[in-house]
Design a protein around this nucleic acid. Sequence first.
DNA 1: CTGAAAGCGCTTACAG
DNA 2: CTGAAAGCGCTTACAG
Lengths: 337, 337
Amino acid sequence: MAVSIKDIARLAGVSHSTVSRALRNSPLIPARTAQRIQKIASETGYSASAVARSLVMRKTHALGVVVTSIADPFNGEVVNGIEEIANRHGYSVILANSQANPDREVTVVRSFRERRVDGILVASSRVGALYVPLLSELQIPIVLINNHHPSEFVHSVTIDNVQGAYDATRYLIELGHTKVAYLGDRFGLQSDTERFSGFEKAMHEAHLPVRKEFLLRGDGKPQGAMTAAAELFSRPKQPTAMFCYNDMSALGVLQEAESRHISVPGDLSLAGFDDIFFAPLLKPPLTTIRQPKREIGERAAELLLAVLGGEQTEKTVVIRGELVVRGSTARLSSERR
Amino acid sequence: MAVSIKDIARLAGVSHSTVSRALRNSPLIPARTAQRIQKIASETGYSASAVARSLVMRKTHALGVVVTSIADPFNGEVVNGIEEIANRHGYSVILANSQANPDREVTVVRSFRERRVDGILVASSRVGALYVPLLSELQIPIVLINNHHPSEFVHSVTIDNVQGAYDATRYLIELGHTKVAYLGDRFGLQSDTERFSGFEKAMHEAHLPVRKEFLLRGDGKPQGAMTAAAELFSRPKQPTAMFCYNDMSALGVLQEAESRHISVPGDLSLAGFDDIFFAPLLKPPLTTIRQPKREIGERAAELLLAVLGGEQTEKTVVIRGELVVRGSTARLSSERR
DNA sequence: CTGAAAGCGCTTACAG
DNA sequence: CTGAAAGCGCTTACAG
């Protein structure tokens, strides 16, 4: 059995109350006594029980983090940021994958609740809407990442989707493109709606039409985008540029274009969103809106910790993305105008 | 305050012992009473405290998982596998990044210990050797992933590095290559040593020389490989094929080759190890040894759970990788023999 | 079947 | 400064 405070008390010839105080450096205990007790503790290999402490303190110093999949490199970086901040403040991270599966989400939330986590971070944009009612009744502070549904216990940190999409589209327009397609997501995500509205805004501002035949829907992954692109490419009217909901989708378009000998950016300028780590490694390297993933995780954890500390905080933190221009976009050649 | 067993006892007019039994479906309690109590529990939104239960049961149903970085997609998939199995068995995963930083490792282990995790999984090959003494004195069962240092409390699950490297090298030789380079890692990792020995074995078997000038050292990441490749490429003698310690390194070689107009696979056949998710997306797609990452995570978690369940298990599970042939390798053209 | 009691390993108000 | 006591929310052996 692990050595407890009582064992140390016996060895030191004091009460366990005194041991507890000495170990926590209570000002009540004179330095010499404290040192003596601490020495015994370290000699016996004592390790305080966080579970006993949690029970009496009613605070676990644990944060629950839900992601759709931790294998997604995007989430990995966000969680990295979260973990960094949590660690720095003495909090542990309990990780759970929801797999975008509603049953799993319920299980996960129930488990977090039983474990009495002090706060919850949700980094899975697929599910925010579902979570809110479930989470709200928990009375546990929550920070949603890239998904805002503000309510009393729910805060959020998100990328500025409208601005990012606007910046990307605007850039394509500045390159001379007028026939610009938008490849979105079919799951009705808030981020898709917002990115589309940024796209629309840029088009409207430039007095360019948003043509229905240039509005496509993928699934946020290469496969869905390939299918959507294949359908577009087989039609007579073609855009000269395309803004994709995310990089994974742009990747699918790139593969489909390649197999059809459609040159990017020669025939089609392509821009994505996220700047996942292989975006610069693609052929051609992908122009995209960079989300500072790690920073997003850090800010989310900081916000949650601030809320836990009883600080007055803002409900929502919006972080601006950055347009990263690479080789997948080019000026529209004059003969193609 | 959250409702406790006592509150329910009061509402049901029974003792809290009875409530506890009813909630755990003890056979001592008649079905009707149990149902009545359970109904009250659910109406009041009762959630059992895992921390109180952990204290009395001396079991937290929590597993500590250490990774160098969760942002590494390789680790992400492994952790995904771990989490899946843990979840299925009612265990939670406490995640910690070590950042390959010894101080962090000590902190992480201490924190896992204080939290009284039931077992620990270490998925960071960089540090296994350091961990073992630290971990062994914990008396907590441990499973090391891709890093074996067996001892009483330490088990491991690893890819078969020797076999994988042998398979890859053998394949290059079968393509007619005789001048085959090995690009390893400079940190003295066990996996590097093993992969090198698989490479050597294949070369020896084919009676081919392992030339010193074709032995390079990177850092496991694209950057280090680029530097090493740059140096090789600037020398007069060139290999016609190269086996890289991992895909990240192969990626660096690919980039360096491209910038020097060295064709892959025309001038140089290139093979990696891992099959990280963008390997098939590279130009050309990378030939590599696939590690079943998710399965590795699952097997590791299963092994740990078996140990926790007191089962008699094997100390080490070795999983075989699979050669995946793609476009980065080609038969040596006859005029280059 | 059911309750009172003890105990898991701590923290801290209270009394000295 | 220090200890005895109570309590955090549970589980379960013991006695009825």
